[in-house]
Design a protein around this nucleic acid. Sequence first.
DNA 1: CTATATGCAAAAAGTTTGCATCTCC
DNA 2: GGAGATGCAAACTTTTTGCATATAG
Lengths: 123, 123
Amino acid sequence: MTKGQRAVLDALDGEAGFLAAQDIHGRLRAAGSPVGLTSVYRAAQALREAGQIDEARLPSGELGYRLCGTTKHHHHLMCTVCGATVEIEASSVERWIGTVAASHGYTPSDHTIEILGTCPLHS
Amino acid sequence: MTKGQRAVLDALDGEAGFLAAQDIHGRLRAAGSPVGLTSVYRAAQALREAGQIDEARLPSGELGYRLCGTTKHHHHLMCTVCGATVEIEASSVERWIGTVAASHGYTPSDHTIEILGTCPLHS
DNA sequence: CTATATGCAAAAAGTTTGCATCTCC
DNA sequence: GGAGATGCAAACTTTTTGCATATAG
């Protein structure tokens, strides 16, 4: 485990979602570490290959990272025109999921629900 | 509707998934159209704002597009160990989706539901 | 004739690579 | 002393913008 990798894990720790590589770098620099952007990318890639973090392409085009196991159920409603998202309450559907999974003999561990449509401003 | 927009729709027509902007451009050039890459991006953005096509960031980092309505509802239950998937019936949740979207003023157009868990063989 | 669309070239933005230096065993 | 990690700068890729020209109404 290199210094850079520890730094990246530190920056990601406690973070709810994905953090852009550049944001990780920015935070580390702001925290006084003289780490280079290159090292952040290299450390993140190594951690990804080691299965410690997840990588995703963010809508902005940047690469994002998060600690493994950070997955949160994400249930959202997104406008296909402007991209506005609304988090939705889903306790009723969570019950439904438990029932459906059980009826096929599955033990549910995680799920994703995304609803696309047009927001009030773009309908 | 401009010439470029028609060309982009043509390139996307019949395509199952997302096509990278650069691929759209390549196809049009290969088909003899002298369209520029810039026009492909501009036409795609206009079509996206008009609600005719969907935009997504591909894992490669490129922007991808597809005709709206190409989406298939996919509601599935996938085993995180062996990858086995089961298609699930979701009429009850579709009703729920209509209600949730309406409560935020949204007009739903598509949705995705994925449930991850372990199948009977791997529980 | 005017407004819009188009294409090229240049600029931005993000990521990766080359290479010299530093660090830690 | 040496293998690997690091940082800078430059290369590369993809997307966006500026601007002059072409086109359509």
